[in-house]
């Protein structure tokens, strides 16, 4: 693996709330290589969105962010607002969840696309910016890109809007694209188109992608590596095949057990279809994380006396050396 595009170490985000400090992200490490896709999965409130918004300084000022995030040799978390503005859109592009709300309803598509182009000096002059904007729209597969420049967001369908959002994110030719639940608000066929689109663009431009989702189906389709988050911590990471084939953490198993397609696939001749398993309970509030393993209160295994009192470290449970498969349990593989 070449030098990673992004290397995050010990990222912690703390928010002050009326009920005390909330450790929304609690010590996260990961790296994204050039052209690689890393999926961050987890339930709502597991801190996955916050962990990427923190990198670009897009959290409210009341949030305290510590750790390092090395991007192109520089630490994003140590940058001033002005320096960050240079990275936003230019080095890192972002796609947000809901294309209904991530476009400004009163500006035409063309205006919103040229905004980033002109702001970063990618092109100079209105005409050049419009030409480039039309190219970008063509690139994301929008029919009639020239006409689309004049359209307003409400005149486009959800899928087309998300294509526009992706075009905006790619306008500055970023080395890293962050897709925050980019397909969640879309219907299934459109989801597939958007996933295909990002995969194609990634292949063409060599962009690294961080794909935040709770949809394991999407993860299986596009990710090289997967990072499972729970309660602000990474509970398991590794190559997507390693994690899917041999999930080590009870939480990951729970997630995979709640996936209908996978349950189906396990049904062989003479085998009873396993039930779709839900994980009992709800995630802990970030103001009251348990002392030991974050998953302990909901864990069906609790296979070690230390589970309740000690945080299990992320230890290697498989994979090959440059890309280890790690899980934060005390008992790893031993559990059948």
């Amino acid at each position: 693996m070449s030098a990673p595009v992004l290397e995050v170490a010990d990222l912690r985000v703390r928010l002050e709330t009326p009920r005390g400090p909330a450790h929304v992200v609690d010590g996260l490490d990961y790296a994204v290589g050039a052209g690689e896709t890393v999926a961050i999965v987890g339930e709502s409130g597991s801190g996955k969105s916050v962990s990427v918004l923190a990198l670009l300084g897009l959290l409210p000022a009341s949030a305290t962010v510590t750790g390092t995030a090395s991007f192109g040799g520089r630490d994003l978390l140590a940058m001033s607002e002005a320096e960050l503005r240079g990275v936003r859109g230019n080095g890192i592009g972002m796609v947000f969840q809901d294309p209904m709300t991530s476009l400004n309803p009163v500006l035409s598509v063309g205006r919103q696309l040229t905004e980033g182009l002109l702001a970063h000096g990618v092109v100079t002059g209105r005409a050049a910016a419009r030409a480039r904007a039309a190219d970008l729209l063509a690139d994301v597969g929008l029919p009639d890109p020239r006409g689309a420049l004049e359209r307003y967001p409400h005149e486009l369908s959800g899928g087309m809007r998300q294509r526009v959002v992706i075009a905006i994110a790619l306008a500055g030719e970023p080395r890293l694209l962050v897709a925050d639940e980019a397909t969640t608000a879309l219907d299934v066929t459109v989801q597939a188109q958007i996933v295909d689109l990002v995969t194609r663009l990634q292949a063409e431009h060599g962009t690294a992608v961080v794909w935040i989702t709770h949809d394991l189906g999407v993860v299986a389709g596009i990710a090289d590596r997967v990072l499972v988050m729970y309660g602000g911590r990474c509970v398991e990471d590794g190559g997507v095949d390693d994690v899917f084939d041999a999930p080590a953490h009870p939480y990951t198993r729970g997630l995979l057990g709640a996936l209908p397609a996978r349950v189906d696939a396990q049904r062989g001749p003479g085998r009873r279809a396993p039930d779709l398993v839900a994980i009992a309970g709800t995630p802990p509030p970030p103001t009251e994380l348990p002392r030991g393993c974050v998953f302990w209160p909901r864990c069906p295994v609790r296979g070690d006396v230390r589970c309740e009192t000690e945080q299990p470290p992320l230890v290697r449970v498989g994979g090959t050396d440059p890309r280890p498969h790690r899980a934060a349990t005390f008992y790893g593989r031993e559990i059948p």
Binding site: L56, L58, R85, G86, V87, R88, G89, N90, G93, M94, F96, S102, L103, N104, Q112, E115, G116, A119, H120, V165, I168, A169, A171, G172
Partner: peptide
């Protein structure tokens, strides 16, 4: 936020 994320 999206506009901020492209550097506005």
């Amino acid at each position: 936020r999206a506009s901020r994320s492209v550097g506005a």
